[in-house]
Simulated scan of single mutants.
Amino acid sequence: MLPAPASPRRDRAQSVQSSELSRNPSRVFAAAERSPVDVTRRDGEDLVLMSKREADARDALLGIAVELIAVATDDRGTLAERMADRFPWMLALGAADRETCARELLDSARASSATRQPHLAVATLTAWRETASALAAGLEGGIVDWFDEPTAVGRP
């Protein structure tokens, strides 16, 4: 029997015996779409069944962690300079934004690891990289005129 759906915090994977996977594959697969499922086996090493999205997110977090370890082991320059060496797109940011970006990337990677939520670090990295790309393309923040009231437009 499958345990109750996992909580949003994925502290522990659900666990099923391999025979349950054989008897009720659709239920086990549905559970694996929500969070990883440990498949225990008598005749071999236990396996983990997870969605490709989950595996890709973990791979992305591992990739970020590799770069952050390289930054941490380098002693040349400031944190922001070392981060910009590993993430060259950061050079499109101003000096103050590079410092903020570096700190946010480290903090989100730590939070992702601590909570087992890889998307936190990936989302932070993506947001900063897209900001840098927009700045490099000349899309700098300017004065924005907001409409206070809805404005009717004609049909195209």
Rank of each mutant, 00 (worst) to 15 (best):
L139T: 02
L139G: 09
D56Q: 04
S26G: 12
W146V: 13
A72I: 02
S133K: 00
D145Q: 08
Q17I: 07
A55Q: 11
L61F: 04
S26K: 13
S108H: 09
A96K: 08
V16T: 09
D46C: 03
I64T: 01
L106M: 15
C101E: 10
R58T: 07
L135M: 14
F87I: 00
G154L: 06
T124D: 02
A152Y: 01
R82N: 11
G141Q: 10
T100D: 12
M90L: 07
D145T: 03
A123W: 02
A123N: 14
R9W: 05
R155F: 14
R34V: 12
A6M: 11
R129P: 00
D59Y: 02
M83G: 04
D74G: 15
E149P: 00
E140V: 13
A96T: 07
L21F: 13
S108T: 11
I69H: 13
A102R: 04
A111G: 05
S35P: 00
L125S: 13
D11Q: 02
P150G: 04
E54M: 12
M83Q: 05
G77D: 00
E104P: 06
T151V: 08
A65G: 10
T115A: 06
D75V: 15
K52Q: 06
Q17K: 07
E104M: 15
D107V: 09
M50N: 02
M90E: 01
V39F: 01
R53S: 10
A111C: 11
R34L: 08
A6S: 07
S133R: 01
F29C: 15
A6K: 12
A72R: 12
L91S: 08
K52M: 07
D107S: 15
T40L: 08
R98Y: 05
T151A: 13
E149H: 03
P3N: 15
E104S: 12
V16L: 09
S15M: 05
D59V: 03
A95W: 14
L135C: 04
A30T: 05
A13L: 03
L49V: 10
S112R: 03
V39H: 01
D85F: 15
